[in-house]
């Protein structure tokens, strides 16, 4: 049996203000799997992603990435293997030009100029941001910023991609483009989102987090079509499963 690339066992996290964000959360993610995490606001989804990359350290339990525990000793290696796409791309883009921002990670990895150039070009090609290379990030639109933020992560050639509300604030065209890009990426992906249609199109397995605990996990189609389960967790059916308000017919894609 192939061991999971991400192994989370009984983790708990309490914020300094006493708010319990996660309680005994356990799950595994296989290599090259696209795994979705959904849940209402304040469920602990973003906290979980921060724990996976070692920005936060769990109060209890253990997280292993490729068999390595996420602790101070392994942090540098884990961050090479794992890329986190932040909810707000403005938090992620801080260099004068898009190219500089994409090269930031590879430069920190100690690559030489030629290697950096290759990583940057590949990441720009994969994310479709080549035409933005010399623009300052703050002049970009929301969709372009998200694509550049994704390129910043891809340039480090991580094995695992963590995405926090990636489709939020995107127009339908940019959202569609992002879905296409994400589906072409072969890495292991953990996608956190409220956009259940987005999860439907990008993830094969999904988990519902509510008040810091897992309330359900399983195949995407199965979980996202369970109206009662979703409503119980402050969610609702994906739009594609809600049917036409006039004739009641369904159009299921993906």
């Amino acid at each position: 049996m192939i061991p999971p690339i991400i192994n989370v066992k009984d983790i708990g996290y309490i914020y300094p203000d006493g708010n319990e964000a996660l309680n005994k959360v356990s799950f595994n993610v296989s290599r090259n799997e696209a795994f979705g995490i959904i849940g209402p606001n304040g469920a602990g989804k973003s906290t979980l992603l921060q724990l996976l990359i070692g920005i936060l350290i769990p109060r209890s339990g253990e997280i292993k990435i490729e068999g390595m525990p996420v602790d101070k000793k392994n942090l540098a290696l884990i961050r090479k293997k794992t890329g986190l796409l932040f909810h707000n791309p403005d938090d992620q883009l801080f260099c004068p030009t898009v190219r500089d921002d994409i090269a930031f990670g590879p430069r920190n990895m100690g690559l030489n100029n030629d290697e950096i150039e290759i990583c940057v070009s590949q990441a720009m090609e994969a994310s479709g941001t080549g035409h933005l290379s010399h623009r300052p990030p703050y002049t970009l639109s929301g969709g372009e910023k998200k694509a550049v933020a994704l390129a910043c992560i891809l340039s480090m050639q991580p094995e695992i991609l963590l995405m926090d509300e990636t489709s939020a604030n995107l127009d339908p065209g940019s959202r569609r483009q992002l879905i296409t890009v994400i589906n072409t990426l072969s890495q292991t992906k953990i996608i956190v989102s409220h956009d259940l249609d987005f999860i439907w199109e990008t993830c094969s397995r999904v988990m519902i987090l509510n008040k810091g605990s897992i309330t359900a996990a399983g195949e995407t189609g199965l979980i996202l079509s369970d109206r009662f389960l979703l409503e119980h967790n402050n969610l609702e059916l994906p739009l594609r499963l809600q049917g036409c308000p006039v004739c009641g017919s369904y159009t299921v894609r993906g």
Binding site: I55, R79, T82, L84, D91, F104, G105, N108, I153
Partner: peptide, 13 residues
């Protein structure tokens, strides 16, 4: 802090 976290995630030492 968030920006610093983003930098750390991208290998800032």
């Amino acid at each position: 802090e968030r920006i610093h976290s983003a930098m750390l995630c991208r290998g800032l030492s």
